[in-house]
Simulated scan of single mutants.
Amino acid sequence: MSAGTIGLLEVLDRDGHVRQALRITAWPVRVGRALDNDLVLDDAHIAAHHFSVDADDAGTFVQVSDTVNGVRTGHRHFNAGERLVVGSEALRLDVGDSHLCLRLAEHALAPELPLRTPRGVWHNLWPSLAAGGVVLAALLFGTWLDTDPDDFVRSLGGMLTGALAAGLAWCSAWALLSKIFTRRSHFLWHVRVLLIGFLGLQLAGAAAHLLGFALSWPWISDFAFVLSYAIAAAMLYFHVLGLEPRRRTRLQGIAVGMFFLATGLSLWFNHEGRDQFGDELYMNHLFPPALRLARAVDTANFVKGLAPLQQVLDEKAKKPDSGDGGSAAAADED
């Protein structure tokens, strides 16, 4: 700051970049929509004289004027007539739909942050290429397992075309939104989020099925969708982070809320449709017997353990299906 400057009041855009700055040389400083203010803000949610910044023997303070919306800073809200003391650090103020930053001459500057600029094209591309190679290998292996040898080449071509088109469309849509809101596309960021998220989903599913088989705990495989929803919520968080990088706490809350909402709906639909909360009627993922860690059960004990199931099946058999109710009633009348 130049000589005589005791503070700086900055108007920030949604990304935190300075759009306008008022050099303060004397107190008080008045802010509002009226033209007689020191800082005039064209914001319909700001009063004619919204607030002022002044100083006394106790220090510098923000005095909220006659306004309906008040002044927000962090998680606190100050109404008309209230006073906010400026501390030892720069103060962020949310006024209407505008964002301000008050910096005083005695405030210490934050250290300079290094630019996250890649040292070259390869340095920027190799993480995405490495993740893409692993994803491609996983897709090839899955296609090989699920396809007859005679149809492998045709299925492989369709899989590659569909995966590439879907991935490009998904990342391009997020990149367009990032360009609109942050003026940067962050295309490679969204590509990495998609690739790493896809690998996480594949590994989580395979690990859940393998553990369920090895330990003879079918509930692990049955509720594998919960972990998949958690990974999908994390993907959503990192995608949206490319649009709103300064609101991490709020985005984390949204992602957690989406996870619990999706999990709750899945549990409810499973219970309504199959009278169980799990996603599978039985464990259908078989692995080599050498990977099984649970103790083997002989045939006699296995059949004996199925005895309680007979009562459950009998009770279900006595319940008429909703679709057969009309036919059963008609048969009784005849």
Results as ranks from 00 to 15, higher is better:
Leu129Pro: 00
Ala166Gln: 07
Tyr237Ile: 07
Phe238Glu: 10
Thr117Glu: 14
Val53Asn: 03
Ala230Ser: 06
Ser221Pro: 01
Leu139Lys: 13
Ser128Pro: 01
Val40Gly: 06
Asp36Lys: 00
Glu10Ile: 01
Asp222Leu: 03
Ser322Gln: 12
Phe238Lys: 02
Glu272Asn: 10
Ala130Trp: 06
Arg154Ala: 15
Ala58Phe: 10
Gln252Met: 13
Asp314Cys: 02
Ala48Cys: 09
Glu112Gly: 04
Arg292Cys: 08
Arg246Glu: 10
Pro218Leu: 01
Leu115Asn: 10
Leu291Arg: 04
Val18Lys: 08
Val31Thr: 08
Ala165Asp: 09
Asp94Gly: 04
Arg72Gly: 00
Val64Thr: 07
Val68Glu: 06
Tyr229Val: 04
Ser52Phe: 13
Gly242Asn: 02
Ser128Lys: 03
Arg30Ile: 07
Gly305Ala: 08
Phe78Asp: 00
Ala206Val: 12
Phe259Met: 02
Gly142Cys: 05
Val11Trp: 00
Gly4Cys: 05
Thr60Ile: 13
Leu125Trp: 06
Arg103Thr: 15
His49Ile: 02
Pro288Tyr: 08
Leu104Trp: 00
Glu244Lys: 12
Trp268Tyr: 13
Ala166Gly: 09
Ser2Pro: 05
Gly273Phe: 08
Phe260Lys: 01
Gln63Arg: 13
Asp43Tyr: 03
Trp219Phe: 11
Gly278Asn: 06
Tyr229Trp: 08
Ala206Ile: 07
Gly205Pro: 02
Phe287Pro: 07
Thr263Leu: 07
Ser178Lys: 04
Ala230Glu: 00
Tyr282Thr: 10
Glu333Val: 13
Leu41Pro: 04
Asp66Glu: 15
Leu109Asp: 15
Leu251Pro: 06
His75Leu: 15
Ser185Asp: 09
Ala296Asp: 10
Ala317Asn: 07
Leu261Arg: 02
Gly7Tyr: 03
His239Met: 02
Arg76Gln: 11
Phe198Lys: 01
Lys179Arg: 15
Asp150Tyr: 06
Asp38Arg: 00
Cys171Gln: 12
Leu177Ala: 12
Ile231Thr: 04
